[in-house]
Simulated assay, not measured.
Amino acid sequence: MAKASIIMFMPLLFLLPFSTLALTQDFCVANLLLSDTPSGYPCKPESLVTSSDFLYSGLAKPGPILNPFNTGLASALVTQYPAVNGLGLSATRFDIYPGGVVPLLTHPGATELLFVLSGTMVAGFVSAARNAVYMKTLHEGDLFVFPKGLLHFQYNPGNTTTTGFSAYSSSNPGLQIVAWALFKNNLPSQIINNVTFISFPEIRRLKALFGGSG
C-alpha cells in the first residue's frame, strides 16, 4: 500500500516549482559574473552578501528615454537588482511623456501588474484565445494586470507626463517589442510584406526609423 501511494505521489513532484535556486535557502543574490541558467543565476557566496545587496534605488528617477517611443524606462530586473534572483519578482518604472507610448510588446516569462503613480494613461492587452481587446483609461492609484505572454501596450493621451510602476512574477520576465522584432533587424522586407501585408514604402520607412536593414 505504501509503495502504491509513493508511485501515485511521484507525478505530483513534477508540478512543484523547482525552477528557482532560492527555494532551498533564504535567498540567492545573483552572481552576475557567472552565466545565467534555466534556474536563474548562481548564488553569490553568502559570506559576501551584505545589507546593501537588498537595497536598490534605480527606480527613484526616470530612466533613459527609448526613442522613438518618448518613454523613459528604469528597470529592477535581476541584471540590475541581483537580490531578486530566484524570488519570482522584479519591477520597472515607466515615465511616458506627452505623446509617448509603451509599444506593443510581450513578456514571455511573467504576468505584469501595473500601478499608476501619477497622471493618466491608456493600457490594454489582446487575448490569445479570442483576439479580444481589453483596454481602459487609468488614473492615479489604478491597477491593471497584463496576463503572462499576452501582447499589451500603454500610451499617454494627455499633455503631462504620466508615471507608472510595474511588478512582474519573475526576476527576468523577458521582453519582445513587436516593432523591433519586425523592423530593427535584417528580416528581409519581402518576408515582412508576405506575413504582415504592410506595403514596401511603409516597411522601408519603419526600417529606417528603427535602424533595421534587409
Score class of each variant (00 low, 15 high):
178 V>I: 15
43 C>P: 00
15 L>V: 11
8 M>D: 14
75 S>H: 04
65 I>L: 08
171 S>F: 08
29 V>W: 00
180 W>L: 15
199 S>P: 02
127 S>K: 13
64 P>E: 09
198 I>K: 02
16 L>Y: 08
97 Y>L: 15
47 S>M: 13
20 T>Q: 12
107 H>W: 01
205 R>H: 13
18 F>R: 08
46 E>Q: 15
147 P>K: 07
27 F>E: 04
169 S>Q: 10
72 G>D: 02
103 P>N: 06
41 Y>H: 10
10 M>T: 12
164 G>M: 02
186 N>C: 11
21 L>C: 11
173 P>F: 02
156 N>G: 11
84 V>H: 00
14 F>C: 11
105 L>C: 13
132 A>P: 10
159 N>D: 15
110 A>F: 04
167 A>L: 13
174 G>L: 01
95 D>W: 01
125 F>T: 04
200 F>P: 03
75 S>F: 02
32 L>N: 05
44 K>Q: 01
200 F>N: 09
21 L>A: 11
55 L>S: 13
148 K>W: 09
78 V>Y: 00
57 S>D: 14
135 M>E: 12
62 P>Q: 10
99 G>V: 10
144 F>K: 09
139 H>D: 12
127 S>M: 13
187 L>E: 01
38 P>N: 06
111 T>K: 08
105 L>R: 14
173 P>Y: 00
16 L>S: 04
29 V>Y: 01
98 P>H: 07
209 L>H: 02
